[in-house]
Amino acid sequence: MMAFDSFADFLAMGGHAPYVWSSWGITFLLLIVAVLHARFERRQLLTTLRRRVRREQARHQPVASQAPLNTAQGGGNHDPQA
């Protein structure tokens, strides 16, 4: 059994709309931000780690690393050692 007669009634929350929806809104906002942050953190970390592994592999193969193609692949971060 729904506690409200209509959707408009549901939104109005019997006159308590600002209190109810601001509390629920901030709660869900923070939960969503937490999930997005965790995903962003993981992806960024994996990208950094992959780039590092690639750079180290390039260092072990000096001939290949001198090819300009490889610099392009490494993305902005050019290693002067390679």
């Binding site: 059994m1 506690a3 409200f4 549901f10 929350m13 019997g14 006159g15 308590h16 109810v20 629920w24």
Partner: peptide, 15 residues
């Protein structure tokens, strides 16, 4: 949407 409103606090109790 489904829980009944509180008899004293009305719908603010949904917080």
């Amino acid at each position: 949407a489904f829980a009944p409103a509180d008899y004293q606090q009305g719908n603010s109790f949904r917080i």
